[in-house]
Each structure stands twice: as structure tokens, then as C-alpha cells.
């Protein structure tokens, strides 16, 4: 179900839990599906002994992908026109993430109603791990 412009106003927000206690296996699963086999995400020995990080960590694109589910669940399938993010902090195995989309503006472009959203994902400590924006086509 898509959002309707009539029932939406600036400041409205939608929050969803993306993952609880992120597992290393899910990171491996994302590596396999996306094709990004960077050992920093899947190889604890390389990541701790060679790269110097405390453990493997999630692909930024896994966080963007999970945050994308929050967006498409909110705005409806096939409705996004823009989606962009900055990765502001790393996501680690064991993290629990929540994402929020907040309506920033509603406008009309070429006869279609468009909503702009601020997008933010935080971890269990309240640290922002992703910050971005999205734009979606609304029903009237």
C-alpha cells in the first residue's frame, strides 16, 4: 500500500526495528548476495590481525539495504524515486538497529505528489550509523 498525500504531513515519522543482535552469518549472507567479499566483513582473523579493527563489521550497504526495507514498507513498493545515505559509523555483529523516516516536504512535480524524507538509522547506544534522504511518489 502506498502512502497518500492527503493523510501525510510534514513532521510525520515512521520508525522500524531493522535487526536485533546482528549475526555474523547475516553479514556473510549479504556478502554472498551482493558479491562484496571484502574480508573486513567476513574474515575475523584478517580484520583483527591485519586491518586492525576489533572485529568484522557490516557492509555499509547492508545497513542501507535494511534501512531500505523500512522505507519501502512505509512508502509502498516501486514508489521510491531517490534514496541516498552517508555511512556515519560502523555497524558491528551484535548491534540492534532502528531506522526512522521523517517527512521533510510534500510537493507536486509533473502532476505527481512527491514526499521528501530525512532518513536516519541508529544503534542500541543511540549512535547514528546512517544518515540520508529519500523521495517517493505518493497517491493523491
Amino acid at each position: 500500500m502506498a502512502l497518500s498525500a492527503k493523510s501525510l504531513k510534514v513532521g510525520d515519522a515512521h520508525t522500524a526495528r531493522l535487526v536485533e543482535d546482528l549475526k555474523r552469518t547475516q553479514i556473510v549472507q549479504y556478502a554472498g548476495a551482493s558479491g562484496d567479499y571484502n574480508p573486513l566483513h567476513t574474515d575475523e582473523i584478517f580484520t583483527t590481525q591485519v586491518a586492525g579493527y576489533p572485529s568484522v563489521f557490516a557492509h555499509g550497504m547492508l545497513t542501507m539495504g535494511m534501512t531500505g526495507k523500512m522505507l519501502t514498507d512505509y512508502v509502498g513498493d516501486a514508489r521510491l524515486t531517490k534514496y541516498g545515505v552517508r555511512f556515519t559509523s560502523q555497524v558491528w555483529p551484535g548491534d540492534t538497529l532502528e531506522a526512522t523516516a521523517t517527512v521533510k516536504a510534500i510537493s507536486e512535480q509533473d502532476g505527481a505528489k512527491i514526499a521528501e524524507f530525512d532518513v536516519k538509522t541508529t544503534n542500541q547506544a543511540g549512535v547514528e550509523v546512517l544518515s540520508g534522504y529519500a523521495e517517493a511518489r505518493l497517491d493523491d
Binding site: F46, A51, G52, M61, T81, V85, F87
Partner: peptide, 21 residues
């Protein structure tokens, strides 16, 4: 160098514009 240097760099930003599904 370490860090990103050890793994081909890190991803800082990603932006998509969808012209159709």
C-alpha cells in the same frame, strides 16, 4: 597503512536515483 587500506577502502556514501522500478 592500516584500516581501509587493508581492505580496499570503506564505503562513505551511496546515492540512487530511480527513473523506473
Amino acid at each position: 597503512g592500516g584500516g581501509g587500506g587493508g581492505g580496499g577502502g570503506l564505503h562513505a556514501e551511496q546515492h540512487f536515483e530511480y527513473h523506473r522500478p
